[in-house]
Nucleic acid binder design. Structure first.
Length: 335
DNA sequence: AATGCGGACAACCGCCTCATC
DNA sequence: TGATGAGGCGGTTGTCCGCAT
């Protein structure tokens, strides 16, 4: 495809964004939505290409970004997801509320990779380095099965420590495609009810009551991983993840007061918010925009996560189907 | 005080996919 | 059906800043 036409244009600014530019972009998007990104610079009075504006907004200016340092839980989750998804940063980011793919990618390249190597784990294969060197050897009996937490990056590696564990898959077979799909698919997949959006790891009360397969426990230990924890029974919202402990605003994707385990709350319920004051504040300023009510472009916005699709009727179903198709492509067909 | 180095983060580049014409 | 434009993604580079020497 080659370069974008905007890249050929002269006089476009590059490099770091000034506060004035940020302000212009924020003002424009909060007022009109982004619509077609290529038209944003002109309409906002910026000498930037649309792509640059999009990136700046998504990675830095969006109001739902969490920012700040990553918690240990977040780092562990990133590693676990990377073991399954590889360098699919956008898919990994989709599971971390308020984090961007760029942020996660940077963390991986600058920090996590190094930590894993220090612990004797190959960051690409997630296998012990010794196995990567001698790749023909099957996982040997020397692998200690009780070492549950070789991803605990808080612990410093011991001198001369022998890496003795498979980081994720200890004495269990790798999780199946079905298992992973179950974690990602919304709960309504088997009926015709409206989609609830691809919330982070689907949850139903039935699932909670079921005994998790062994691989699931190893993979997504909901006891130890608050990001994956199911909400308490009879609670109508997704609990704010404990990874947001330091985030007084919670983050847009941190919890979803309008989504119940049964489906979607009404608009009145959404706007009433039932005492969710943090969200209410946020709602006044940004909800119309995040609902895709752009005055420029009536198409649903993309790039804010799939949960906003709750508001888009048939289009949300179409987009939802696309997500299913994408996941199916990646992880195989499910029944 | 000057310099070099490394970490963290922001931004760009190039490619791919998809929608539209 | 191919050309084109736009959005999205992953890899890479650039920049800033703190720290050690």
């Amino acid at each position: 495809m080659g370069r974008h036409s905007c890249c050929y244009k002269q006089k476009l600014r590059k490099g770091l964004w000034s506060p004035e530019e940020d302000e212009k972009l924020i003002k424009h998007i909060t007022k009109f939505g982004h619509g077609c990104w290529s038209s944003v610079p002109k309409l906002a009075g910026l000498e930037r290409c649309g792509k640059s504006c999009r990136l700046r907004w998504i990675n830095y200016l969006r109001p739902d970004l969490k920012r700040g340092t990553f918690s240990q839980q977040e780092e562990k989750l990133i590693i676990e997801l990377h073991a399954v998804l590889g360098n699919k940063w956008s898919q990994i980011a989709a599971q971390l509320p308020g984090r961007t793919d760029n942020e996660i990618k940077n963390l991986w390249n600058s920090s996590i990779k190094k930590k894993l190597r220090q612990r004797g784990i190959d960051p690409n294969t997630h296998k012990p380095l010794s196995e990567v060197i001698d790749d023909h050897k099957a996982p040997s009996a020397s692998i200690e099965k009780n070492s549950q937490d070789s991803y605990n990056l808080e612990e410093k590696p011991q001198r001369n420590a022998v890496v003795t564990s498979y980081p994720l898959i200890h004495n269990s077979p790798p999780p199946t495609h079905e298992f992973f799909l179950n974690r990602f698919l919304p709960t309504h997949e088997t009926n015709n009810s409206p989609p609830t959006g691809l919330l982070p790891f689907s949850y139903t009360q039935q699932q909670q009551q079921q005994t998790q397969p062994e691989s699931a426990d190893l993979f997504f230990n909901t006891d130890s991983n608050p990001l994956l924890s199911a909400p308490p029974r009879n609670q109508n919202n997704w609990g704010r993840s404990s990874s947001n402990n330091n985030d007084s605003n919670g983050g847009f994707f941190g919890y979803h007061p309008w989504v119940t385990s049964d489906g979607i709350k009404s608009q009145n319920q959404i706007h009433g918010l039932e005492g969710e004051q943090d969200f209410s504040k946020w709602n006044d300023q940004y909800l119309p925009f995040f609902m895709g009510k752009s005055s420029i472009d009536s198409k649903p916005d993309v790039g804010f996560g799939v949960n906003q699709e709750l508001y888009h009727g048939q289009q949300s179903v179409d987009t939802y189907n696309k997500h299913i198709q994408r996941i199916t492509t990646s992880y195989g067909q499910f029944s």
